[in-house]
């Protein structure tokens, strides 16, 4: 290598370092001025999701001094894809980043809504002769949707692992499939066990649970590793403080009223390790999603 070549190589190295520095500078500036993307997994309609999350994000933005912008895709897979693929995704409310491939992106749970754990379950009507999973073989079993974690992935994974083949029928949402069970349209249903309990009480439906998953925490708010620690901290604090602040309480109550949720509202700090059962599920599932 000649001297001139060495000099040229050093010059290009300096230029590269300078370029990266400038990029980082612009990125920080961007974080300071431009709103950060806050992705929300589709659990409800896009509009209802926006009506639910926009007041909360506006509150958090004000309190944390970190401008946040709601981002959502047309469907849950699309939102997940956008979350993963978009270059400046900062925060996400999702439980779909624990798959092995996505877990390598190092998104970390920073907060979660208060509330009980959730369970996946397969239920039948009380008058049904079905009592064990094996009896569901080659029968039509209802599920909320192909993207439902506790309503489809957990029970279907259990069925597949038990070697039971069923014909899935999707009811659109949790209560849709519960309605089909109540009318006898389907023999059994994969559901969120907590929602099923509330539904049965309200509709006076007597049912049996023939399978139930382990307990999972509800969806967490996750932060991308590129977001600075201070920013994450500010945002998490703002979320946690909402339930302790009058204005935050009002917003939370209004949001709860919007979706008809009862019980405790607000957010608490999330321990990322408590979501390891999600990671374990994705690693061990026989469903195609686990290999993504």
């Amino acid at each position: 290598m000649t001297k001139s070549m060495k000099r040229r190589k050093e010059r290009s190295r300096y230029l590269t370092i300078l370029f990266i520095f400038i990029l980082c500078l612009f990125e920080n500036l961007a974080f300071a001025g431009e709103p950060l993307s806050f992705y929300v997994l589709n659990q409800r309609s896009v509009t209802l999701t926006a009506e639910y999350w926009n007041p909360i994000l506006r509150y958090v933005s004000t309190r944390s001094n970190v401008p946040l912008r709601l981002k959502i895709g047309r469907t849950a897979p699309e939102t997940t894809r956008m979350t993963v693929e978009e270059g400046n995704a900062a925060f996400a409310y999702t439980n779909q980043l624990f798959t092995p491939a996505r877990d390598r992106l190092e998104w970390r749970a920073i907060a979660r809504p208060v509330g009980k754990h959730i369970h996946g379950a397969i239920v039948v009507r009380e008058d049904s002769r079905l009592t064990i999973l094996a009896q569901l073989s080659n029968k039509e079993v209802g599920f909320p949707s192909p993207e439902a974690f506790v309503g489809y992935w957990l029970p279907m994974d259990a069925l597949l692992k038990a070697g039971i083949r069923v014909t899935p029928l999707f009811g659109g949402n949790q209560e849709g499939v519960m309605g089909q069970l109540k009318t006898g349209r389907i023999a059994a249903a994969g559901v969120n066990a907590e929602i099923m309990a509330d539904y049965a009480t309200r509709e006076k439906l007597r049912y049996h649970t023939i399978w139930k998953s382990e307990a999972y925490l509800n969806l967490p708010i996750m932060a991308h590793p590129r977001v600075s620690r201070n920013t994450v901290k500010a945002v998490r604090e703002a979320f946690i403080q909402m339930a302790r602040d009058e204005e935050g309480k009002k917003i939370l109550q209004a949001a709860a009223n919007l979706i008809g949720a009862n019980g405790e509202t607000g957010f608490v700090a999330a321990d990322d390790q408590k979501y390891d059962n999600y990671r374990r599920f994705y690693r061990g599932t026989v469903l195609p999603i686990g290999t993504e």
């Binding site: 309609s45 896009v46 509009t47 999701t49 926006a50 709601l70 981002k71 959502i72 895709g73 047309r74």
Partner: peptide, 8 residues
């Protein structure tokens, strides 16, 4: 509403 939220 839905599309401006999505930004499509």
């Amino acid at each position: 509403k839905r599309e401006v939220i999505i930004g499509d």
